[in-house]
Amino acid sequence: EVKIALDSAPELENSGTYNWVQGFKGVLEDAGMDVREMPRDSVGNEAEKFDQLSTGLLELSLSDVRAIAQVDPFIYGLRLPYIFDDSAHMQRALAEGKIFDRVNEAVAGQDVMLLAIVPIGPSSGIITTDAAVRTPEDMADLRMRALDDAQIAMYKAWGTTGTIVPWGEVPAGLQTGVIDGYLNSPFIPIAFGQTDFVKNFSDSRTIIPIRAVIVSKMWYDGLSEDQRQVVNDGVAAGNAAAQAWLDKVSSAALTALEDKGVTVQRLTDEERGAFRKLSQQVYDSGLMPSEDVKVWTDLSSATR
């Protein structure tokens, strides 16, 4: 039995990872393999999912990229602002740079394998309560919610301020003015019912929101040649399903926001370039070893 730990509600309309799972699962089931979806949180939180993959008690999980980074932070290159133009560009880079081989060598000691990187929604934009953002200067007086030190550095590079706030406190923080906005996929304000107080979305396409598909190495190594081929075909089908879904929803997500009364700033490539240019400082800020940054930037240029 292949147990798949879901990271989202089983909704095809709203979840990139669930589309991936359906594509993957279809191929495995056609080949006669037994697949079971484990509802979100039913096998535990991120740390528990990773640990169960390690011990072979769980076969596959849609996980936070952080799970891989806890073993080897190299993967965080995926979160450098503006490193990739879009999800297709990212997938090309991952494939041509043989990133999976490199990561899997590093995580082998934890008995897990990274099989795929899946977009969970359209690229992240700047979500704010009041301010309409078209340029970095528009953000000068804002206080933005940061996820980690990398985002704090990015906001600093943009000339604004970042402050760490856990996700659970974000809605209250926005409503009470502790923070003025955050960076995320255009889906998020609707999915979390924030459109009463989130009034602006700027389509800056800064980061591609992603999940990691991680499997138990013990399970994968135990598969026969044929089964392994089925799994690899499943991964390809999953990737295709997620990309097809993404193409469908990318523009719809912005209109959905407008229907909810959120003003959407559709930036030109030139306007986006201003954010991109300032973001370069983050690459050299020392948060990642410079040789790792170089691997990612070279790869990105080569596959653009």
Partner: peptide
């Protein structure tokens, strides 16, 4: 043993 291979983020 498994935890010794992981790093606390911050």
């Amino acid at each position: 043993g498994r935890q010794s291979g992981l790093t606390a983020d911050t």
